[in-house]
Structures are given as structure tokens and as C-alpha cells.
Amino acid sequence: MELTAEIAAYRDGTGDPGRLVGEFRRAVLLVPLADGVAGAAGGLMSAVSGGIRWFYAFTDEEALARFAQARGEDGREWPYLAVLGARLVDAVVPQVDGPAGVAVNVADGDGSMLFPPVTSIVPDGCAVDTVGAEADAGMVA
């Protein structure tokens, strides 16, 4: 099953957290670059909310376009990298000074999903929880 279908299943209560995280890790995600955004100094586009840096990631160009439109910035070019979800959490998140997670398809309301900095999603050294949490403990729908 693809990531968007796993997100939908999880959100309607029929999904499996382990399958969702596995599909996220296997998915090729489009991660916009911060270059060209007012006040950004390059790198991957992200935002800080609740003390967590959230990297924006999208399952396809249409989801990225909806994000651009929601920001009122659909008239400009949106350069992005195609990155495996596993690479984002295993290689990018550890480079961040502080907790970081991934926000997938954030402009899609019911189709969005946050993958927070918790055990079973990010490397243990980057997780904000400390005692064997299940993969779904910190997921926010």
C-alpha cells in the first residue's frame, strides 16, 4: 500500500502504526528547498512549532502544489529534492540542533500526517521520549 493510503487507513482507525511508519520510511518524498523563500538561508524547507522543527515533505507534485497555493506562492518555482522518508529521519533529523520530525502533505487536511521525533520513528538519540514508546504514541492526525 502506498503512503497516502496508509495515512488514510490510520486516520480512519483501520490502519496499523507499524505499517504506516514502514511505508513512510520506504516512500520517496518531495522535500522543498528553502532557497528563494523570504528570510530562508538555504537547506530544506521547515518550520518550528511547539519547539519541534518540522521538515515539509510531500507524496507527489500535486500535494506540493496545494501547499504552494495555500501559502499564496503558487506563482513561483518550487525546487525540491526527492528523498526517502528513511533518509529524512535517519540522516537529516540527527543533523538538527534540537527535536525534529517530518510533516507530510500539510496542506491536505485529512490527508496530512506528522511523524514526530519519537522512538520508532527517528533514531533513539534524537527521540524526545525516553521509555519504549510504541510507533503510534506521538503521531498526530
Rank of each mutant, 00 (worst) to 15 (best):
G111I: 10
L84D: 08
R19S: 06
R53L: 13
S46V: 10
D74N: 14
A70L: 13
R19C: 01
E77D: 15
L20F: 01
P17M: 06
R66G: 03
R53W: 08
A135L: 04
L29V: 10
G111T: 09
W78F: 10
R19H: 05
Q69A: 15
V28M: 06
G13N: 02
V28K: 08
L88K: 14
V31A: 10
G101H: 10
E23D: 04
G125N: 01
A5L: 09
V48Y: 00
L84H: 14
S112N: 11
L33T: 10
R25E: 08
A34L: 04
V28F: 01
L29A: 07
A70Q: 12
A65P: 01
M45H: 05
G39L: 10
G22N: 00
G13M: 00
I7Y: 03
F115A: 08
A127L: 00
M45I: 01
V118Q: 11
G72H: 12
A137V: 10
A107F: 07
P123K: 00
Y56E: 10
E73R: 15
G98V: 08
V31P: 09
A41G: 13
G50F: 06
A47S: 13
I7S: 06
L3Q: 09
M45R: 12
V92T: 14
P123Y: 00
D129P: 07
D35H: 06
R66E: 13
Y56W: 11
L3Y: 07
E134I: 02
D35I: 00
A65Y: 11
A70V: 06
G101N: 14
P32S: 08
P123T: 03
I7D: 04
S49D: 14
R26I: 05
R76P: 01
V118K: 04
A41M: 09
S120H: 13
D16P: 01
I52V: 15
P117W: 04
A107G: 11
G22W: 00
L3N: 09
V28S: 07
D90S: 12
T14Q: 07
A70Y: 08
P79I: 10
P99R: 02
G13L: 00
V131G: 02
V89S: 01
P94T: 10
E62T: 14
T4N: 07
V28L: 09
A40I: 01
P94C: 14
A133M: 04
P79W: 07
G13P: 03
A100K: 06
V118R: 01
F58I: 07
L20Q: 02
V89C: 03
G109R: 09
L44V: 04
G125I: 00
G101W: 13
A40W: 05
G125R: 05
E61V: 15
V93T: 13
A82H: 09
A8S: 07
L44S: 03
E62W: 11
P116M: 11
V28C: 02
Q69C: 07
G72Q: 09
R66V: 06
D12A: 04
G132V: 02
P32Y: 09
I52C: 08
F115M: 12
D124T: 12
E77N: 12
A86N: 15
I52G: 08
D124Y: 05
V31C: 11
A133D: 06
Y10M: 14
R71C: 12
L29E: 07
F67N: 05
G42R: 01
G51D: 11
V131E: 11
L33G: 11
R25C: 03
Y56P: 03
L29H: 09
G85N: 12
G125P: 00
G85I: 12
G132W: 10
V92P: 09
R11S: 00
S49I: 13
